[in-house]
């Protein structure tokens, strides 16, 4: 009972450390089980004659993610983008790197759409970094421990993503709508200009506003369009491109920091660990 009362009244910092400690305790076991399950699947694939290509496939997948996102970034709308950048006081993005991470677990409570990956702040991961797959955006990181990080999936209603519809140049805020009984994931874009003609099938990408998600990451395509209850905006349902239910590994977009910032971050982390 003393433990229970203490747990309920822990100050934020100590509570977070206790939570991180428990997560770190279970993470190796989760990693082993997930790896074992994945290897069993790999063995089955090997029997089918494609298992020996797994490593090569992984490298090519990483390259594919980079190329697809570059393609989306530079596709056909240069002039319009220049105009939008001027309007939105566009600032140059810092270069970023992709960190590959395996999914080791999903939220044990089932109240949120989250999953846990087997890389943490030792690999440079921190909160609010975009998580992507070759198919597109899957979510953003929440908190990170030394060897794990939680990813909030875009299917969760609390995950809001500023998006852009490249064909019309329409902006909006997308939020998760959970998972349909069929397993398909839908999100809804609110606050779309009512004068723009949005069609089913239109591509949806991240707009880069807000600073969490880099611009131009593919999210999915428009499924249906309706008018907002107020009549001031349009709403659109988005069919998400990535298969969120079967994610085995993903990539986290880690912004490159300049050396001075890196040094400050490391010192802050060391000070936190000493406390």
């Amino acid at each position: 009972m003393v433990t229970l009362v203490a747990a309920l009244n822990l100050p934020g910092g100590i509570g977070n450390r206790a939570r991180a400690g428990l997560r770190e305790l279970v993470a190796p076991l989760q990693g082993v089980v997930t790896t074992a399950v994945r290897r069993a699947g790999g063995a089955r694939d090997a029997i089918r004659g494609i298992g020996d290509l797994a490593e090569q496939n992984r490298i090519m997948e990483k390259e594919l993610v980079r190329l697809r996102n570059e393609l989306l970034t530079y596709r056909g709308l240069d002039e319009e983008n220049r105009s939008l950048r001027r309007q939105l006081t566009y600032r140059d993005r810092m270069p970023s790197k992709l960190v590959s991470a395996e999914v080791i677990a999903r939220d044990v409570g089932g109240w949120w759409h989250t999953l846990r990956i087997g890389k943490g702040y030792l690999e440079g991961l921190g909160p609010n970094m975009a998580a992507i797959t070759p198919d597109g955006l899957v979510g953003r990181t929440l908190d990170a421990t030394p060897r794990t990080a939680d990813v909030l999936l875009i299917s969760d209603p609390s995950c809001r993503v500023p998006v852009l519809l490249p064909r019309t140049g329409a902006f909006g805020i997308m939020a998760g709508r959970g998972q349909a009984p069929t397993g398909a994931v839908y999100c809804r874009i609110d606050f779309i200009n009512k004068n723009l003609e949005i069609r089913p099938g239109d591509e949806v990408v991240t707009s880069g506003l807000g600073g969490i998600f880099p611009r131009g990451l593919l999210v999915g395509s428009i499924d249906s369009v309706t008018m907002d209850a107020s009549g001031l905006y349009q709403q659109a349902m988005v069919a998400v491109q990535s298969d969120l239910g079967r994610l085995g590994h993903l990539f986290v977009v880690v912004p490159e920091r300049d050396p001075a910032e890196e040094l400050l971050m490391r010192r802050a982390r060391e000070a936190r660990e000493r406390q």
Partner: peptide
């Protein structure tokens, strides 16, 4: 609680 986002306790 530690393995999800539920507040500890």
């Amino acid at each position: 609680d530690a393995l999800s986002l539920i507040p500890l306790g």
